[in-house]
Design a protein around this nucleic acid. Structure first.
Lengths: 173, 173
DNA sequence: AACAATAACGTTATAACGTAACACTATACA
DNA sequence: TGTATAGTGTTACGTTATAACGTTATTGTT
């Protein structure tokens, strides 16, 4: 067997793309929040992920990246921050976190979540937001940002390529 | 101090109203599921609750009711069943369970959830369901039942009566 | 620059939520 | 009346999240 190129050794911090960093800084300034190095690291790590990941998965990634043990609380605080400023959404039905695809303006959490591969597709829908907000207000309810998660099967998982068996992928959440 | 009328002694099983029982039986027959005594008890206990409760709160209620210790798994299995047949909804953002107000037909989970008192108001919206379903299908995504949870403040908590301080109620989830 | 006020971070411990594995029991149906 | 299947009980364990408290860094003010 050939030597693995990427063993479990410590890695450098993932560099947050300049554009993303700039947007994040603007968001935080506007919200009166501080964008610290630790928070940038957590956000950068999340941005490297294709699919939503759990807080503990993020913890493991960051530990590997930084080459030291971290407490769960550290990661939870950073996630709380990222969700608060709108850079990240929490998918409560999967207990997983994913970087927002258009964090420029605050909006509801609205995702299609594949039960097979774990992929989460973010949608935008002014109409859904409006319907929910109107329904809430008509009942005297003051609404916050809605959570909308549609479980199901993504296109890829519905049309398995030759040789696939339709059984869920290991690690799918 | 006078003796309390309802101490922590064992209580009888809450009687499930006949109409509710009948509806539940029909639902289960239609779904090919069995409505066992243990499941009826769990459902009846949930029906006595005004607000959503956690699995462990339900566990404690049932233990008190039955006068013996139960394993968490027991309650989780009964909750899984009740959710599966549509008698109960899970509010994932609050990790809590609540009896459905119109279990006669299957539908999305759609609630206004008060962050202060924990109350959950179930809504119906064919339009939201349709919008989400269409958005999903247009992306090749095969949707299951959507989860829609709108956090916020209910009318009561927005208009605190004299003497109230607007601070959250102990036990609010 | 020195100070106070506040926000963020680190550490330890623990609470809350949920599931795996396996043996046993009840029900349904041939 | 067997036999297959679904449900239940029990023990143990895994995952997710927070409490409490002290330290460090940043900000805004003299």
């Amino acid at each position: 067997m050939k030597a693995r190129k990427t063993a479990t050794r410590r890695l450098r911090a993932p560099s947050l793309p300049a554009a993303a960093l700039h947007r994040a800084e603007q968001l935080c300034t506007k919200a009166g929040e501080r964008l610290t190095p630790a928070r940038i690291n957590a956000y950068a790590e999340l941005l490297t992920q294709k699919n939503p990941i759990s807080a503990y998965e993020l913890l493991a990634l960051m530990e590997q990246r930084e080459g030291r043990k971290l407490a769960p609380l550290t990661v939870y605080r950073q996630l709380d921050f990222l969700v608060r400023v709108g850079l990240v959404h929490k998918l409560t039905s999967a207990q997983a976190y994913v970087a927002c695809e258009h964090p420029d303006h605050p909006h509801d959490t609205l995702y299609l979540v594949c039960s097979s591969c774990g992929k989460a597709d973010e949608l935008e829908s002014e109409r859904v937001a409006e319907l929910l907000s109107k329904a809430a207000r008509s009942r005297g309810f003051k609404p916050g940002k809605a959570i909308v998660e549609v479980p199901g099967l993504c296109q890829t998982c519905r049309q398995p390529p030759d040789g696939a068996d339709g059984i869920g992928v290991a690690g799918a959440r």
